[in-house]
Nucleic acid binder design. Structure first.
Lengths: 370, 370
DNA sequence: GAGGGGCGGGAGAGCGCTCTCCATGATGGG
DNA sequence: CCCATCATGGAGAGCGCTCTCCCGCCCCTC
C-alpha cells in the first residue's frame, strides 16, 4: 500500500489520486491540505486513494505556487570561535577542486562545532521547528562569497527566512539581509541598528552576577579572562564585570584577552598567573576558557576553588562535566534559539510585524569551582 | 543594480530578463545554465540583463522540472548517545503543543549534540558539499514518526538523497530507506545487509591498537569501559579489544558497559575500581568515557598515566583538551563524513551504480594518558 | 411553492522554469 | 549554384500543485 500504482515508475501525482478517487484534482488538494469543507464520505474516499497510491505532495510544485518552502536557513556567520588575533577575517576561499573539503581540522565549520554553543543553538532551533514541520538548512557565512550564497539562497526562495547566529560586531551579513528585506532573526544584537529582530543575553548582568559571587566568596585579588573584544558578547561581559568590580571598590582588574577557546583560556591564564601570582579569583568569558584556566591553575599547584575560585560563562555541557564542576553564568541558549525561531515564524505569518528584540536574563549556577 | 525592475514588488523572472535582453526565455535559461552554444554577444546582453534586473532563478520552479533540489538530508538516526539501559527506545512523542520544543536539556537533539562526534560529521559533510552547491537539511529520526517524516521528505522530492548517521543496530531507518529505493549513504554498516552504501571504521583494528599499546606500555591488570553493546561500534570495539588481549594471554578482561557519555564513563570507572582496585590500564570505548574515567581515577588517588594508563577512542576534540591529554584511537570522522557525501553524490550522478562501502582504518594517537 | 443564500465540487489558469522541437540562416562540398 | 549540414534562437508544452471562479444543488424562509 505504499507503492505507486502508476504504470510508469514515476511518483503518483494529485491527478493520479483524483482519478483513483473519482474526484477532481482540486478536491484532493482540499482534502490533503485540510482546507474548506469537503463531504466526509468523499474525504474518506480521497484518503483511501492517497494511501493506495502512496501519494506524497511534490514540494517543489507546491512551493512554486505558495511561495513557501517550509524551510529556514540556519546560518552561522562570523566566527567568535577563533582568537581575535586575525582581526580582518575573510581568510578562506571558495575551495572548488577536489582537494578542498575534507579533513576539516582547521575549517570554519570545524571551528564552529568545536564550541558546544552551536550545538545548543541547533538543538533549540530544531526542537522548536520540528513539531511545526519546518526544516532547517545549515549554512555558513564566514566570507564574502559565502554571504552572497546565503543572500542568493534566500532570494531564490529556497528558504522562507533565516536564523542568523552572528557573533562578530563587524559582520556585514545582518545588514545585507536587512537591506534585501529578507525575513531574518539574529542571535545577538546587530552592530548597527537595523530593521531586524534579534534575541540576546544581558551579558553585563551576567558578568555582574559573576563578580558579586566572587566578591561574596571573599576573593580580593580577582582577574578576568575576557572573550575577544571585537565580539560584543566578549566586550560586554568584560565591561559588566569591570563595572561591578569598580562599584565594589576594585577599579583595576587584570585582564587577559582570550578567544573563547580552551587553549586561549589556558594561554590567558598563564599570562595572568605570571603577572599576578597571588590572584584568588578568576572570571572567564566562557566555560571553555574557564576549563582551560582550571587546568593551568592546577598545573601551577593552585587548588580550585580553595586557592583560586573560577567562574565561567554559558553553562555549556563542559561546565558540569569538568573537574571541579564549574560555577558559571547560565546563558539559556536553547531557549534563546527557540525564541529566535518563534520570532521568525511570527514574522513569516505576519510580514508587517515590526522587528522586536528579546533579551534574556542570565542566572548564576553555583557548582564547585567558586 | 540589485533591485528588481518590475512594477510590482515581485521578484524578477526569466520572462523579465528575456524582455530586458530582447531575447527569448529559452535563451536566457541557456545562458544562466551555461548549456548549449549561445552567441557571445547575446550572452553578454543577457548577463547584463540578469544583473540589471537582479534576477535569481526560482529554485522551486527549477526543481519542479529537473527533479533535483540540490539539497540532501543529513539524518541522525537512533542515538548511540544515551545509555543502553532503555533498550526499547522510541520514547518521545510528536510534541505538538506550544509546550513542546524549548528547553532541550533532555531532548534527542540535545543529546546528539552533547557528543562532539556529530559536530565532526556535520563538519565533514558540509565541507564537502558546500563547494558543490549542495545544501544539507538537518533531520532527526529517533522515533517512528520521525522516521516517517524522513522518508516522506525524501519521497516528496524535498531532498535528492540522505546521509544517515545510524548507530543503533536495530535502527529500522536504513531498511526503510533502502526498500523505498531512496538514494542514501550510511555512516556505519547496517545491521541487515541492504542495497545501500556506507562508510565505516575498522573498529576491531582500533581496539587492537589500544590493547597493544597498553600491553606494550607494561600494563598487566587491564580493564575496559565498553560502549553500549547494542551499538555495533560499542560491541565491535569491545570484541576487538578482548580478542587482542586474549591473544596476548589475557583471556579475561573486566568490562563495565557505559553509554558513550562522560557520566556513564565515570560510573563505569567507579564500578571497575571497586571490583578491581589494582588495575593499571583502562581502554574506554570513546573519549568522553575516557575523560570520565580519568576524573574518577584522579578522585580515587590514582595518577594518570603513572598509576593507571587510559586509552580512549575517537580522537574527538576533548581528547586533546582534557588533562592529561588522551592517548586515543583516531576515527577520522570528518574524512568519513566527506566520503559519505561523495558516495551519495556519485550515486545521484549515476543512479545505477551499485552500493559500495568504504572502511576506514583507525590510527593510534599517543598523548599523555597512556 | 418560489426565491435566495450557502455549501461543496469541478474547471482551468497559472506559478517560473527546462527542454524538445522547429525555423532560420550560415556554411561547405560536389 | 544547389542542397545537405550545422549552428543558434524561438515557440510552446508541460513539471505538479494551488486557488479563484463558477456552477449546481439543497435547504431555509416567507
Amino acid at each position: 500500500m505504499t507503492d505507486a500504482l502508476r504504470s510508469d515508475g514515476a511518483a503518483p501525482t494529485l491527478e493520479d489520486v483524483a482519478r483513483a478517487a473519482g474526484v477532481s484534482r482540486a478536491t484532493v488538494s482540499r482534502v490533503v491540505n485540510g482546507v474548506r469543507n469537503v463531504d466526509p464520505a468523499i474525504q474518506e474516499t480521497v484518503r483511501q486513494a492517497v494511501s493506495v497510491t502512496g501519494y506524497r505532495p511534490n514540494r517543489a510544485a507546491r512551493s512554486l505556487v505558495t511561495r513557501r518552502t517550509d524551510a529556514v536557513a540556519l546560518v552561522v556567520s562570523g566566527t567568535g570561535v577563533e582568537p581575535a588575533a586575525g582581526g580582518g577575517g575573510e581568510a578562506e576561499r571558495p575551495g572548488e577542486g577536489d582537494a578542498a573539503g575534507r579533513g576539516g581540522e582547521g575549517s570554519f565549520t570545524a571551528r564552529v562545532f568545536a564550541d558546544p554553543f552551536f550545538g545548543r543553538v541547533v538543538t533549540g532551533v530544531v526542537d522548536y521547528l520540528r513539531p511545526r514541520g519546518i526544516h532547517p538548512v545549515l549554512m555558513f557565512a564566514e566570507a564574502s562569497w559565502a554571504r552572497d550564497d546565503v543572500v542568493s539562497y534566500l532570494r531564490q526562495g529556497s528558504a522562507d527566512g533565516a536564523l542568523i547566529v552572528s557573533t562578530h560586531a563587524e559582520d556585514p551579513l545582518p545588514a545585507l539581509v536587512a537591506e534585501a528585506g529578507l525575513p531574518a532573526v539574529l542571535y545577538a544584537r546587530p552592530a548597527r541598528p537595523a530593521r531586524i529582530s534579534y534575541v540576546d543575553l544581558a551579558h553585563r548582568d551576567g558578568a555582574r552576577l559573576a563578580a558579586e559571587h566572587l566578591l561574596a566568596r571573599g576573593c580580593r585579588r580577582i582577574a578576568t579572562i575576557s572573550g575577544p573584544l571585537d565580539i560584543p558578547a566578549g566586550a560586554d561581559r568584560l565591561a559588566g564585570f569591570q563595572e561591578t568590580m569598580a562599584r565594589h571598590g576594585h577599579p583595576y582588574i587584570p585582564v587577559a584577552e582570550g578567544g573563547f577557546t580552551q587553549e586561549s583560556g589556558e594561554a590567558a591564564m598563564e599570562r595572568l598567573l605570571a603577572a599576578h601570582p597571588g590572584l584568588d579569583g578568576v572570571f572567564a568569558g566562557n566555560d571553555l576558557m574557564a576549563t582551560g584556566a582550571c587546568h593551568v591553575l592546577r598545573e601551577h599547584g593552585r587548588r580550585v576553588p580553595e586557592d583560586v575560585a573560577v567562574v565561567g560563562f554559558d553553562d555549556s555541557g563542559v561546565a558540569a562535566a569538568c573537574r571541579p564542576p564549574l560555577t558559571t553564568v547560565r546563558q539559556p541558549v536553547e531557549d534563546m534559539a527557540a525564541e529566535m525561531a518563534r520570532l521568525l515564524l511570527d514574522r513569516l505569518a505576519e510580514p508587517e510585524r515590526p522587528a522586536t528584540s528579546v533579551i534574556f536574563e542570565p542566572t548564576l549556577v553555583v557548582r564547585a569551582s567558586a
